[in-house]
């Protein structure tokens, strides 16, 4: 009798697990332990440094808006992830100080939030970058690490993280907006321009896995209009949060 009960329990839990694996589960709904983890969210530019600009759009303001929302959403996910922002308002912070904040806290993940302005008005959407330098990483396992190579040590994991965030940013999955006044529960963030690697100045010197998200091309009319819509900003922040949690779960 006991044996039959055990078998029934085993089969039903297997079915439950299988059901939860359908397509892409919201990263926030799984319950792996992420406590003690620190994520640094870095809204690019600020103060006198606007970053990209087009018309009356200044990149620094969009970056901050999204970053504040990502922090709020991670904290609301109940995952006990400590979120640190490199700036909380419209102030200028040196790139090196941003990296320093993350390094001194021994953070687990660094996420730079930016937007782009491409001369091609027809190009739209987001791209997720990780650091790349053509020089081989030196000093691994040695006492002295050439500082320019420090982010290179984390290249493989940064690439994995960029893929997770790009995947979630491209997904149509916004349960948070279900039942919203507008009735829209499926606002796609923006088109995807994929995962890329580059000699990023913003990720240089960050001693942990790190990615930089270019959320949109503000020179594209549709992207520029979308960025003025709080629903879209909310959707971008939601998907970035999902990508971060998904990466932290599997890293």
């Amino acid at each position: 009798m006991k044996k039959t009960l055990l078998i029934v329990l085993f089969i039903s839990s297997a079915f439950l697990c299988f059901g939860a694996q359908s397509t892409m589960p919201p990263a926030s709904e799984t319950s792996e332990n992420t406590s003690g983890i620190t994520v640094v969210i870095d809204p690019g530019h600020g103060g006198g440094e606007w970053g990209a600009s087009a018309g009356n759009i200044q990149e620094k303001n969009i970056n901050l808006k999204i970053a504040l929302l990502v922090k709020k959403k991670i904290e609301a996910s109940g995952r006990n992830v400590n979120v640190v922002l490199t700036r909380k308002d419209d102030e200028y912070v040196k790139v090196q100080d941003r990296a320093g904040m993350a390094n001194s806290r021994k953070a687990d993940f660094f996420v730079c939030i930016h937007s782009d302005n491409l001369p091609q008005e027809k190009i739209k959407g987001h791209a997720v970058y990780y650091f790349y330098s053509p020089f081989p990483a030196q000093g691994q396992g040695e006492l002295v690490v050439k500082w320019d190579d420090v982010q290179k040590k984390h290249m493989a994991r940064s690439e994995k993280a960029a893929e997770a965030i790009s995947k979630y940013l491209s997904a149509s999955l916004i349960p948070e907006l279900k039942g919203a006044a507008s009735g829209t529960n499926d606002v796609l963030p923006l088109a995807s321009r994929g995962v890329r690697k580059t000699r990023s100045y913003c990720l240089n010197g960050v001693d942990m896995p790190a990615v930089l998200i270019e959320c949109a091309n503000i020179n594209n009319k549709e992207d520029a209009t979308a960025l003025k819509d709080d629903k879209v900003i909310n959707s971008i922040a939601y998907h970035i949060k999902e990508g971060i949690l998904a990466y932290l779960r599997v890293k």
Partner: peptide, 9 residues
Amino acid sequence: FKGGTSAES
């Protein structure tokens, strides 16, 4: 310069 990472690269 008015661009971001992609434009600058």
